[in-house]
Simulated assay, not measured.
Amino acid sequence: MSGDFLNIFTASFVTFFVLIDALGVAPIFASLTARGNAAYRRNMAVRSILVATLIIFGFAFFGAWLLQQLKITIDAFRAAGGVLLFLIALDMVFEKRTERRETRADEYLEEHETPEDVSVFPIGIPMLAGPGSIATAMLFMSESESWMEKSAVLSAIGANMVLCLLVFLVASPLVKAMGESVAGAITRIFGVILAALSAQLLIDGIIGAFGV
């Protein structure tokens, strides 16, 4: 494994780890699947990861083509992505993102008294494959100049999906062990990191667009 591959993989993995926030989604997954048995929870974990992976990979491969058809430059997309990620970061720091996830989960539970398929909505979309992760996958793949770089990005996405699956499979005991305070602190730390990443994307997009 070359140094360039490892560097790109590490940077991409950290970015998607912060964006997807498996530890933050785990309590929501646990609450949505609490009414089912162990087999149901395993099935929902596997299916939600497959759904999210297919969506993110789909935009990663065809996102650049879509931008080209819409005549959107990569610098404009980079700047817009920076703004979008910064808004997500603010939500994470002030726990608005967690509140929305919990509200969405509560509304779903109120409407469905018996366990149903939650793998597509709301777990797969938008909790895992949300606007931030989709936009970032498109951006990273568009910026990759070789298949080595693209494979590093895709490997990082795949590794995060595997990590999410492992977290979901142990969601109930994990949530009990962490507690709400620890989970909230982790989400805030991720938010600060994401804010710094988003600011860099915005700066790079402005510099590229205006040739500063």
Score class of each variant (00 low, 15 high):
202 L>I: 06
71 K>E: 15
211 G>L: 12
32 L>N: 03
92 M>P: 01
101 R>C: 04
55 I>M: 10
47 R>M: 15
83 V>F: 09
76 A>R: 02
174 L>A: 07
169 L>R: 05
194 L>C: 10
64 A>N: 13
132 G>R: 02
143 E>D: 14
85 L>G: 00
128 L>S: 04
169 L>T: 02
181 S>G: 08
174 L>T: 07
187 T>Q: 07
4 D>C: 07
1 M>V: 12
48 S>A: 14
1 M>P: 10
116 E>F: 08
208 G>P: 08
161 M>I: 06
50 L>P: 02
110 E>M: 07
26 A>R: 03
112 H>T: 11
151 S>K: 03
111 E>R: 15
201 L>E: 05
33 T>C: 06
166 L>T: 07
57 F>I: 13
25 V>L: 04
74 I>P: 00
200 Q>S: 13
202 L>M: 11
105 A>C: 00
193 I>S: 04
4 D>H: 07
62 F>Y: 15
6 L>Q: 13
127 M>K: 06
6 L>V: 10
200 Q>G: 13
24 G>L: 02
52 A>E: 01
103 T>I: 15
11 A>F: 09
135 A>Y: 03
108 Y>D: 06
96 K>I: 03
125 I>E: 10
163 L>G: 04
177 A>W: 12
38 A>L: 10
69 Q>N: 14
6 L>W: 08
71 K>P: 10
112 H>C: 14
49 I>G: 05
105 A>Q: 04
201 L>F: 07
174 L>K: 03
137 A>T: 01
115 P>W: 06
161 M>T: 00
146 S>F: 13
200 Q>I: 05
200 Q>F: 10
168 F>H: 02
86 F>V: 09
